[in-house]
Simulated scan of single mutants.
Amino acid sequence: MSHGEEQLSWEPAPGQGAEVLYAVDGTLGRARLNRPRAINALDRASIDSLHQQLTAWAQDDRIDAVVLDGAGERGLCAGGDVRALREAVLAGRQEEAVDYWRAEYAVNALVASYPKPYVAWMDGIVMGGGVGVSAHGSLRLATERTRLAMPEVVIGFFPDVGGLHRLAQAPGETGTHVALTGEPVGGADALVLGMADALVPSHAHDRVLQLLRDRPGATAAQVAEAVGQPEATSSWLAENRAWIDRCYAGDDVAAIVQRLREDPDPAAQAAARTVGARSPFSVAVTLEALRRAASMSLEEVLAQDLRLGATFAGHPDFAEGVRAQLVDKDRTPRWTHGSVAEVPREEVLAAFDG
């Protein structure tokens, strides 16, 4: 930690808890997600705190740019606090979950439309809700340690927080692979997906901050030039574009799984097994949502996310997926449908009418 960092006074937002801490660092507003034991998962208190402080800094003439990072060594943010959402759903309080998503998506929209430079330090784990508070920023810095994912199909949900807006615009079918498998990708892949602007060494955090103190509006190219590139950072997605584009084309999710299964590339066959283990309902709805997102603005995608959230809050796969992955951790969810081929088209379309 730099000398300058030691001098900072980290405080919660006025009237909020310590789930997120803030400091004024020269003309930088520093925001730090502060639940390291949970890899900074975003509970409702975190979201309310971020909304309050980011709104205040947007109008504060002393602040020229905002920089977001995460406490602890493991990463920026592991996602939303879905265990709490599952408990609300099981207790019959579905509206509590929908209110959480409404508040979260408002923060995502605020980040995307922020009137000042919004810099996200996307080191380590950046998943789900963590993507929502970083990938919509104006300067997104990934590192060789970045593990980015939208893993929602693993828990019987769908990639939300406006993530499908980015994934629908990713080259070829790379975004489709990330959405339907839920598998993590690296920092170079985050650049390919359009979810990061530069790849910098994880040890360059202090140097990046020093540059931003001097030049709050620094571009990705200027940051990369100042701190250099990490070593050996190839993109797995770029290297596997041939079978990814071949297999994930089109709107028929059962056909996609079939093509993955029959493809000669072992990585495609592995992807078929991965997608096959996810919630079939989630995978089918995710593909439909992704294809629709291709012609939508971010605001429209976030509105679609909220409609789908209401659907998923009432669907058994969400409570079951969270149970299997995060509560009992037996990793053996019992999904509503046996395979994606068994999910009726009308059930998928009905999910969007929430």
Score class of each variant (00 low, 15 high):
residue 245 D to E: 03
residue 347 E to L: 11
residue 63 I to L: 01
residue 323 R to F: 02
residue 268 A to I: 08
residue 259 R to K: 05
residue 182 G to D: 14
residue 105 Y to N: 03
residue 262 E to G: 06
residue 338 G to W: 04
residue 316 P to L: 01
residue 158 F to W: 14
residue 170 A to T: 09
residue 6 E to K: 15
residue 189 D to R: 12
residue 190 A to P: 13
residue 76 L to R: 15
residue 61 D to I: 00
residue 16 Q to F: 12
residue 152 E to Y: 02
residue 125 I to P: 05
residue 61 D to W: 02
residue 43 D to F: 00
residue 313 A to K: 06
residue 11 E to K: 15
residue 232 A to C: 02
residue 337 H to L: 12
residue 73 E to T: 09
residue 23 A to Q: 06
residue 24 V to E: 08
residue 204 A to W: 05
residue 81 D to A: 05
residue 12 P to A: 13
residue 110 L to K: 02
residue 121 W to N: 13
residue 295 S to T: 12
residue 249 A to Y: 01
residue 327 V to P: 01
residue 239 E to M: 13
residue 207 R to M: 11
residue 281 F to E: 14
residue 163 G to I: 01
residue 338 G to R: 12
residue 32 R to E: 12
residue 323 R to I: 02
residue 345 R to G: 02
residue 257 V to H: 06
residue 323 R to Y: 01
residue 251 D to Y: 01
residue 215 R to W: 10
residue 267 A to P: 09
residue 139 L to I: 09
residue 57 W to H: 02
residue 274 T to Y: 04
residue 237 L to V: 14
residue 21 L to A: 10
residue 10 W to A: 08
residue 178 V to C: 07
residue 39 I to C: 02
residue 325 Q to R: 12
residue 280 P to H: 05
residue 113 S to G: 13
residue 315 H to R: 12
residue 139 L to C: 10
residue 255 A to E: 05
residue 186 G to Q: 04
residue 264 P to M: 12
residue 209 L to P: 07
residue 276 G to Y: 03
residue 107 V to C: 02
residue 211 L to S: 11
residue 248 Y to P: 08
residue 148 L to P: 09
residue 70 G to M: 15
